[in-house]
Simulated scan of single mutants.
Amino acid sequence: MITVIDGRIAGPDATLPMLARNGHFTAMQVRGRRARGLELHLARLQAANRELYDAELDTGSVLDSIRTALGDDIDDASVRVHVLEADRLHLFVTVRPPQEAASSPRTVTSVVHQRFLPHIKHTGGFAQGYYGARAQARGFDEALFTTAEGLVSEGTITNVGCFDGAAVIWPDAPMLHGITMQVMERRLRAAGIPQERRPVAIGDLPSFESVFLTSSHGVVMVGGLEDAPLPLDGAFAARLLGLYADEPWETI
């Protein structure tokens, strides 16, 4: 088979993502060749591999592949680890420049949508990219997915958390249990801050003292929904961001 990309013949390895029937992945920020929640990333990849392919994943090979991709001269990066199914299962690692979470509160809009197999971070992300781009074209930073009844599940690339003044509320809905969300769950537990899962309607967001997003980029507060501002508790925001900053980095 011959494949031409932008007028140039591509090698067989370059065409692998296009030939893959399906796949799953994880995304992480690397600083000083370390990552937060590294064991959670490996567990995510292993669980998805077992569910999708009934196969074990060699996590040692995952770490070796990340080290190879970083080489000897890259310490800080955005890293994605894909497992792709083509003629067989392939481990595919990409390295890009590092990204930081936004320092200012984000604005969000909402759209009725439910990802297929939402608990898996799979490669079928066209709808997420489409809705995210549409939101940004309208001047928003992120789109939150809701049911037809208006219950929030997750964002295009984020999880959503809410603070009611006493506890952090996570939506009780089908969604990806994101790595940074898992990191924050254990940080909040260690800090003695109560958490619970319950249905959260998009119209309920203004009633919370703070709303925040978690993603592979980090944690960021939400300052507006559609064209209306949302409450933002400065003391809670400082504590939340401080808890995330204190999460240790694990050597790859």
Rank of each mutant, 00 (worst) to 15 (best):
E85T: 11
A166P: 06
A137H: 14
A69W: 09
A69K: 05
T3P: 08
L63N: 11
K121I: 05
G178K: 02
T3V: 13
P17E: 01
E56L: 05
T26L: 07
L42S: 06
L89Q: 01
R198Y: 03
A238R: 11
V30W: 06
N22K: 12
G124C: 12
E185S: 12
P118W: 00
S104E: 14
V152Q: 05
R96D: 13
E51N: 07
E56R: 05
A43N: 03
Q99P: 00
L225I: 10
A235Q: 15
T147Q: 01
L243I: 07
L144A: 08
G32K: 14
G124P: 08
G165A: 05
H119E: 14
E196D: 15
A101P: 04
D72L: 03
Q114S: 11
L84D: 00
E100L: 09
A77H: 03
I66L: 04
S110T: 15
I66Y: 04
L205P: 00
I193V: 15
D75S: 15
E85A: 13
A48Q: 02
H41P: 01
L230F: 06
R239F: 11
M28F: 10
H119C: 05
D233I: 11
R96F: 14
R67K: 09
L117Y: 15
L225A: 07
R80N: 07
V4G: 13
L225S: 08
V108S: 06
S78M: 10
L240R: 10
F212K: 10
W170E: 09
D204L: 07
R36S: 06
H217R: 15
H119L: 08
R88N: 02
E209F: 12
A190Y: 11
T180S: 05
L84A: 00
I193L: 13
I2Q: 14
Q128L: 10
Y53A: 04
V152W: 03
D204E: 13
T158K: 00
V81K: 03
Q99N: 10
